[in-house]
Design a binder for these strands. Structure first.
Lengths: 343, 343
DNA sequence: TTGTACGCGTTATCAG
DNA sequence: CTGATAACGCGTACAA
């Protein structure tokens, strides 16, 4: 029934605090921003008034004055993709510890939306940009970033952007390890169902796979490029297994592609490792409980985000942009076995 | 070496536009905010100047003036949890279409962090709150929300909060269907490894499971409450299967709990549906490709977020708070079978 | 060390 | 219909 004890009045402003403490607004401001030249007496009075009135500075006004929002914009393809969710989570943890908030925007794999989201973040005056959009070729995206003049960290992407820091995964290492292992087991026809070839990870994986096979005569690597989608995975797999000589091993280029691969394999009545071997890029929840356990090219995605955040903090403190490469590793399951005899 | 080509000058401000068009600032403002009383001639001049200067209004200043940020704060336990990622994604899609941005903050299942994040969002002047934090009992959380006076939509949570809209899932329906089916198949000892009992979904599931069993003498439902974590799932399962009479069926109360259940089952050398039956709450990627396919109590999580956004838009337009319940459904896999004979 | 006064970029009120 | 001007809430030279 009765209203809240205390404030029927609006929120207390800095003026109110100043009056309450019997000092000028500027003094309040100085105390609150830890200015060196304030007497202890002043500090006491002001802090007491702040306490009594429950005053909290208005960040909007602060930002308008100072030009800084202590907010970092994060642009990813889709936050409901486990990969980006963990990257974003890793970044937020590090940034939050330094008093920064993160503002996440999804591009939904659409370059136009990506640009809109970038503009939105820039209009909201973020202090920096963490970017991992799908398209490598986005001129407008690169322009929007460069034009903003904001410190930028690219995550697992190259983009033409100069002056940006970059955190990359060593996709080549993991892929090489897998292909070498397959070759050792006698595989001769290996298929990589890959994402878009203009996206860095896909590019690197394809290059590494081809390089690993190059020195082994009789081994063919076929790369099927397409969207990072289950549909692409499904169609590519269906085409592969319909052949007279189907591949002896398939590498799925992403979580979503993997779903399509499974769908088509089941449809064809094939299973790993008996009919062919199977590996996937990037961790999948429950992968180890598939039967048999799924082989994975693993990497720490939270660390990817955390490192991106670290590089961002460096830039914000005036550091030079730099590039960091994080490791990738093959984690064995039970889906890779000896090459089946050619039928 | 050389500086950026083009603008050595700062961004164009509204004053610049006014000068360029030979009008007053207030006229520029009116044109840009679609004020009814502006002549066509004026509109032309202003828009031309805006175009030429590439002027974009400063949202910070706008917000400071109007008090609205066109941003909705979203508080969830952890965005890298698939459940919340999809909820958030569904909400963003709807809100973005109406010109709103979403600002996501994670509580990491920590009530203190939850409160801090709420304060952060409120300080950033969000126009509304979408909340799905883990703890039901958080007095400080409820206070922070109520105290903010912001329109609020609770997602799958009750919280004491009055005056908030709510979007809920009909957890009882799915759970009832599953338990009925298990009982039909002769199961007598059913275990629900559940999340925290003060969180609405866990509460509802437990109640529904017990209710379903109540009319069947000889059937026992045991609820093991704990964190929504794989650790809880693992420990609970380990304890269950070590018994002389282990349960004939296990229901996992969340994705994370499920991981622990699998871990402990494998450790014990047990598998579904032979040794016991298994179901999980909420969809899991690749669930249908587990061997056998995993039985699931399914719901559309994007729709959950989308509906929350819809309710938020209603509130922002002055509508009364209301409550919506979304369906839940049992999706059969191959992990539910006849009850194993008691050993 | 403290107070005064101005400006950050808009919107809204009030005359004209 | 349009223009001048006062807020919005705060930071910061500059003067005292």
């Amino acid at each position: 029934m009765t209203s809240e004890p205390g404030n029927a009045t609006k929120l207390a402003g800095m003026k109110d605090v100043a009056d309450r403490a019997g000092v000028a607004m500027s003094s309040v401001s100085r105390v609150l921003s830890d200015h060196p030249d304030v007497s202890d007496r002043m500090r006491e009075k002001v802090l007491a008034a702040v306490e009594e009135l429950g005053y909290e500075p208005d960040v909007l006004a602060q930002s308008l004055r100072t030009g800084a929002t202590r907010t970092i914009g994060v642009v990813v393809a889709d936050i409901s993709n486990q990969l980006f969710a963990e990257i974003s989570h890793g970044a937020e943890t590090v940034l939050r510890a330094q008093g920064y908030s993160t503002f996440v925007a999804n591009s939904l794999n659409d370059p136009e939306i990506a640009v809109k989201q970038l503009r939105m973040l820039i209009k909201r005056r973020v202090d920096g940009l963490l970017v991992s959009v799908g398209e490598e070729d986005g001129g407008p995206i690169v322009d929007a970033i460069a034009n903003s003049g904001l410190p930028t960290v690219l995550i697992d992407r190259h983009l033409g952007t100069a002056g940006a820091s970059r955190v990359l995964s060593d996709h080549r290492a993991g892929m090489s390890a897998v292909v070498e292992k397959l070759i050792d087991l006698g595989h001769t026809r290996i298929a990589l169902i890959n994402g878009l070839p203009n996206v860095l990870p896909a590019m690197e994986r394809a290059a590494a796979a081809k390089a690993a096979a190059a020195s082994h005569p009789g081994v063919t690597i076929e790369v099927l490029s397409g969207a990072f989608s289950s549909q692409h995975g499904e169609e590519a797999t269906r085409a592969l297994v319909a052949r007279a000589e189907r591949p002896t091993a398939i590498v799925a280029g992403s979580n979503q592609i993997l779903v399509g691969v499974y769908t088509a394999l089941r449809e064809a009545g094939l299973s790993a490792p008996h009919d062919l071997s199977l590996v996937t890029c990037d961790p999948v929840p429950l992968a180890e409980f598939m039967t048999p356990a799924l082989d994975t090219i693993w990497r720490d995605r939270q660390e990817l985000g955390a490192m991106a955040a670290t590089l961002m903090l460096e830039s914000l403190r005036g550091g030079e942009p730099r590039e960091v490469v994080l490791p990738t590793e093959y984690r064995a399951g039970g889906c890779i076995g000896p090459a089946p005899r050619t039928r």
